[in-house]
Design a protein around this nucleic acid. Structure first.
Length: 173
DNA sequence: TTAGTGATATCC
DNA sequence: GATATCACTAAA
């Protein structure tokens, strides 16, 4: 069966819809030497809106967060703690900052491990996630059971945003 | 629990 | 220019 490659339309929806649907999809990455890596997405987190204190965009529109306000289907790569690349996909309407963090793969737990495995770095920032043959996301029809949980690593965001359940995890069979 | 690491934002 | 902060990981 042919896997369906997700198009821009998939991402051009509200993050509340896209984030849970992204769980169970397969992220594919073609290396320079032609090797294709595939990893099923096991966990995502939604960062949505300027009011969301956990979202980078809440600090205002800056050169870095400009991407979040921009077109959907764009990869937002962010260097955290000087050594870890975190990968997000932009969703939703323009001027409405929404990003979905790919928090873990099926065999790679941890957002930085995922990017390390996929060899994603800052050079991918601002690139489209579809319409190219370097990095894309496939749907093979797999639909995992989901559970939700509060997001991780945003203690600074305040009680409300810290506890909101915008983390979507594939429930292990 | 702590160190390591560097881009970004914010304050001079 | 100088800090302070940070969507993390590994080692202990």
């Amino acid at each position: 069966m042919m896997n369906r490659i997700l198009t821009e339309e998939f991402f051009h929806r509200d993050g509340m819809e896209v984030a849970p649907e992204l769980v169970g999809k397969i992220i594919a990455r073609k290396l320079d030497d032609g090797t294709v890596l595939r990893e099923r997405i096991a966990e995502t987190e939604l960062y949505r809106g300027e009011e969301d204190k956990g979202c980078h965009a809440s600090k205002g529109r800056t050169p870095r967060t400009e991407l979040l306000f921009g077109e959907s289907g764009i990869i937002y790569v962010y260097l955290c703690y000087g050594m870890h690349w975190l990968m997000n996909v932009i969703t939703g309407e323009k001027d409405q900052p929404q990003g979905i963090l790919l928090r873990a793969g099926e065999t790679k737990n941890g957002p930085a491990k995922l990017t390390k495995y996929l060899q994603i770095d800052g050079s991918f920032n601002g690139r489209p996630i579809c319409g190219n043959d370097t990095v894309w996301i496939e749907d093979d029809g797999y639909r995992p059971k989901l559970r939700t949980a509060p997001r991780v690593g945003i203690d600074y965001a305040g009680d409300y945003w810290k506890n909101i359940e915008w983390r979507f995890i594939a429930d292990g069979e």
